[in-house]
Design a protein around this nucleic acid. Structure first.
Lengths: 88, 88
DNA sequence: AAATCTTACGGGTGACGTAACGATC
DNA sequence: GATCGTTACGTCACCCGTAAGATTT
């Protein structure tokens, strides 16, 4: 469970589209598919469902999504703190 | 600033010894040296000082150390939550 | 038929481990 | 002189990007 994977997860969920997430993250769609697939296997649940037009978070994916977003937000703040105290 | 680097940082600081940290993390001393060196360059401060027998955190490193420990602790809890909600 | 997700394949970057060196008690 | 930290080097794994395939509207 890498940070990049969580970022991909959150972005894809918000945009409801792997292609759009790929564009937003400046990577390519297959990378999104792989990261999501890896995360699903790691968690043992399916995170997305839908068609080739649009995807949605599964019920089982909703809580992991919130937690992932929280991890990223907290990390962002904490890492900025580390940098500030380091530089100061 | 990777998670592994923060883990190395905290472990080395607690054990006051790079070799001991390497053994604790099941990696090798040069890896510790590199990660610490990279982190120091990234933060722009020296994190350790001392002799070949023992090392200590610098004053500038104390706050980054606390923040790093907090990041790891929070992440550990949050990731466990992700896994639990995923598996449940 | 066009767009999207998935799978397979090739290439490049990064990190580890080994080895050699320098320094300290 | 023995242990520890640093630097240099070779190797391997990981991840991305490209290409081809499957599916849905």
């Amino acid at each position: 469970m890498e940070n990049q994977t969580l970022k991909t997860f959150v972005t894809a969920a918000r945009l409801k589209c792997f292609s759009a997430a790929a564009r937003a993250l400046n990577i390519v769609q297959p990378a999104i598919s792989r990261q999501i697939s890896d995360l699903e296997q790691e968690l043992g649940v399916s995170l997305f469902w839908g068609t080739t037009r649009e995807v949605w978070i599964t019920t089982a994916g909703e809580t992991p999504l919130r937690e992932a977003a929280e991890i990223l937000a907290h990390e962002e703040r904490a890492r900025q703190l580390v940098r500030q105290t380091g530089e100061g």
